[in-house]
């Protein structure tokens, strides 16, 4: 376990070689699911963006902590399940949906969320997909030596993001932003020590919400109106007092 963590941290500090992959189409290969039928990969990404990761359940190394980390990160975000599709794909033909589900820490009593799918890549299409995603794998006896990949695929089948190893916080944030909206002209990277802002970017819905900082823009106008009313009241009261003071003199006058 300890070893796995060291390996993970090594992966995560590597500079991701994302350039060659961004916005390229992935091949729409058939994969095998729990129902053991072959289904094209597009049946998951054609409706909503797909987060794709590759792993195999017998992995003695990074696969288990890697998938668990992804699971935890996704659970921490309050992004609705119908906003994206999560696919864990195994390149080991001895795998099946059950073993993969177990790898992700799910079981019959603790089933995966509805937007999770576990599938196995048939040996025939392994090369093609691996090449397009940049998956490096080598068979070492019964096991595989491989890199850990997390990909975000658009509904057109284009790679929107490709992370080798565990994503950094920034990379996670970018991923969440990508899945929660199609096109927003802006997104926020405001730091932590901002005490308020005009608007808040809400990653769950991908929209901007007003924040109470906006009230600060209203203060000057509201305060001006208040000041005016106060001034008028003070002046009015002052004026009636003056009249009250002069009254006795007037009432004495006729006498």
């Amino acid at each position: 376990m300890c070893w796995a963590i060291i390996l993970l941290s090594f992966f995560s500090t590597q500079q991701p070689d994302e350039m060659g992959y961004l916005l390229k189409n992935i091949p729409d290969v058939p994969v095998r699911t729990a129902e053991s039928s072959l289904q094209p990969l597009s049946s998951w990404y054609s409706q909503k963006p797909m987060i794709l990761t590759l792993a195999y359940s017998r992995c003695p190394g990074v696969c288990s902590p890697y998938v668990l980390q992804i699971r935890d990160q996704l659970a921490m975000q309050s992004i609705a399940e119908d906003k994206f599709q999560m696919v864990v794909l195994s390149f080991d033909s001895t795998d099946n949906a059950q073993t993969l589900s177990k790898l992700a820490g799910y079981s019959k009593v603790n089933p995966p969320p509805s937007n999770w799918t576990f599938a196995v890549l048939p040996t025939e299409s392994r090369e093609e997909l691996a090449a397009s995603l940049g998956l490096k794998w080598k068979k070492l006896g019964e096991l595989y030596d491989h890199n850990s990949l997390l990909l975000l695929v658009s509904t057109e089948g284009k790679i929107l993001q490709r992370v080798e190893g565990l994503p950094s916080n920034d990379q996670w944030n970018r991923l969440f932003r990508e899945i929660t909206h199609e096109f927003v002209p802006v997104y926020s990277t405001l730091g932590e020590n901002i005490w308020t802002s005009c608007f808040r970017y809400d990653p769950a819905s991908g929209t901007w919400r007003m924040n109470w900082g906006l009230l600060l823009i209203l203060i000057p106008s509201v305060a001006t109106v208040c000041i005016l009313l106060i001034l008028q009241t003070i002046i009015r009261v002052g004026a009636t007092k003056k009249i009250a003071n002069t009254k006795p003199i007037i009432s004495h006058d006729p006498v």
Binding site: N193, I194, S197, C198, I217
Partner: peptide, 16 residues
Amino acid sequence: GGMTSDPLLMKNLTFF
């Protein structure tokens, strides 16, 4: 430096 403000908010105030 312990506190910073939202640049967008500040720009709104500046031009107001």
